[in-house]
């Protein structure tokens, strides 16, 4: 579908905030779903990018980091330009009608973006834990603060927030006796693995959002699979990207 790029900004060097005008998509979007964007230039395949928010039943917002040639090309797009976007795609986060305890959202790096819409949609404000490389790469803390009961920040080098893993904060929250009903996480696999293991040890339901190289994005080419604990392989684009953390084999 062709959608107009309505707004563009650079949140920090190499990190772009796009808002596209696409009412159909905005109405249908659920947190954790993604859009599949044709970037132009010599990038042949589309690029999957999480929906960060849907605004006024009209706009879809996504935030992406320039990594390689596709995202570099996309970053050149100008407002009013038409973008070829498929979406919303995939199975997003399940949003419960009520929570029997805290909801904890744990994001690392570019994995934090889909958590913003989730934080806004949950029936109560969640605890949000964000992990960054360093102070320079830390973004969106204020926006998350508005949607969260509390925001905790960690960085690898300690230049902002807690020095160390974002998962340390989850562990200490659990140790402090907080009653946690659900955990939602998106970020690097090693981080999500620790989150899923910690959730399992403490009998907390945990949803993880997986990342894999994709072709079609709609479930047809079966190139994007991740391995499950029962040994089967499922499509990240269609069966996921959000899975029950207990069912994913992070080493498979």
């Amino acid at each position: 579908m062709l959608c107009k790029l309505a707004f563009k900004s650079e949140l920090r060097q190499g990190l772009y905030n796009f808002i596209i005008d696409c009412p159909e998509m905005a109405k249908a979007a659920k947190p954790g779903q993604f859009v599949h964007v044709l970037c132009g230039g010599s990038a042949y395949l589309r690029r999957p990018i999480s929906i960060c928010d849907a605004v006024n039943d009209r706009f879809v917002r996504f935030i992406f980091e320039v990594r390689g040639k596709g995202t570099a090309e996309l970053a050149k797009a100008q407002p009013e330009q038409l973008l070829d976007v498929l979406g919303p795609l995939g199975n997003g986060f399940e949003v419960p009608e009520e929570l029997s305890g805290e909801a904890v959202l744990i994001g690392g790096g570019i994995g934090i973006f889909p958590l913003l819409m989730l934080a806004k949609k949950l029936p109560q404000k969640p605890l949000v834990m964000l992990g960054f490389r360093d102070k320079q790469s830390a973004v969106m803390i204020r926006e998350f603060s508005n949607a969260a009961k509390e925001v905790f920040v960690a960085s690898d080098d300690g230049s902002i927030g807690h020095k160390g893993f974002v998962t340390d904060m989850l562990k200490s929250k659990i140790a402090s006796g907080a009653k946690i009903d659900k955990i939602y996480t998106c970020g690097p696999v090693p981080m999500m693995k620790i989150v899923a293991d910690t959730a399992k040890e403490n009998n907390i339901e945990c949803m993880v959002s997986m990342e894999e190289r994709m072709g079609c994005g709609v479930g047809a080419c079966v190139t994007c699979t991740c391995t499950m604990t029962d040994g089967s392989r499922r499509r990240v684009c269609k069966d996921g990207p959000v899975f029950n953390g207990a069912e994913v084999d992070f080493d498979g």
Binding site: S42, Y44, C221, T223, C226, G231, G252
Partner: peptide, 20 residues
């Protein structure tokens, strides 16, 4: 058939490689 482990797709110039 279970197929291969991921990554199963790689972008190349004007095409892709797959190992589903």
């Amino acid at each position: 058939r279970l197929g291969n482990r991921s990554p199963r797709i790689a972008e190349v110039n004007d095409g892709i490689l797959n190992s589903v």
